[in-house]
């Protein structure tokens, strides 16, 4: 890959503005939710089922979330992570600052177009297999800011979303329910048919 050198901050601004406008132009339609494996159960290779069961169990039992908390839903996530609701019950207590060590992105908050390239980059840096939970009204659809000039109307414009947790913000119980739904979704994945 060719590395471009940028010297002045105004040049950086122009590049950023161009990148954002391009991202907006190609994000006009939502990305379809990755769920094609959910009805494929019958087509599966029988020899692999116990391997699948083992792998899916391992994957869903220690989902490590990555830092992606642009707004106020982050507080509900913190509550969920803290002792009262305690997501370490699901092996999730380690929130990774590095996307390379994480397999779940909980998108807790309003996303602006200015921030969108960074979130997309974090998602792209996460290693497969990876999942996304859209937490809260803004993450699902842009929420009350949907018609704003600067807000991304739902994270599924830029990254594929597995589970949507509604609420403004969702209570920790709702987030935990969403995490349980994701567990059920992962349990149906097969290594033979790649999910995404």
């Amino acid at each position: 890959m060719e590395v471009e050198e940028v010297y002045s901050s105004s040049e950086l601004d122009r590049k950023e503005g161009k990148a954002i406008n391009e991202l907006i132009a190609r994000s006009q339609e939502p990305i379809p939710d990755p769920d094609q494996w959910l009805d494929e159960e019958l087509k599966r290779n029988i020899l692999l089922t116990s391997v699948d069961a083992m792998l899916d169990w391992a994957r869903r039992s220690s989902l490590w979330p990555v830092f992606c908390f642009p707004a106020c839903c982050a507080f509900e996530f913190m509550t969920t992570a803290a002792s009262r609701f305690d997501i370490s019950r699901f092996g999730m207590e380690i929130v990774r600052a590095s996307p390379r060590q994480a397999d779940l992105m909980i998108t807790a908050g309003t996303l602006t177009w200015k921030m969108a390239p960074q979130v997309k980059r974090i998602y792209d840096q996460m290693a497969e297999p990876k999942w996304v939970i859209a937490m809260g009204a803004c993450a699902i659809s842009g929420g009350i800011f949907r018609s704003s000039y600067s807000v991304v109307p739902g994270y599924n414009r830029i990254i594929p979303v597995d589970v949507y947790v509604p609420g403004c913000p969702p209570r920790p119980e709702a987030l935990l329910y969403g995490i349980r739904m994701l567990h059920q979704k992962i349990a149906k994945m097969s290594i033979a048919a790649k999910g995404k």
Binding site: S10, D13, R14, E16, G17, K18, I20, N21, W113, K114, Y149, S150
Partner: peptide, 19 residues
């Protein structure tokens, strides 16, 4: 003097009443 909250290349000024 350049844009600080929005990005370079954004059209218009959103806090104007006629935006």
């Amino acid at each position: 003097l350049k844009r600080i909250v929005l990005w370079d290349g954004f059209q218009g000024h959103p806090l104007r009443k006629n935006f």
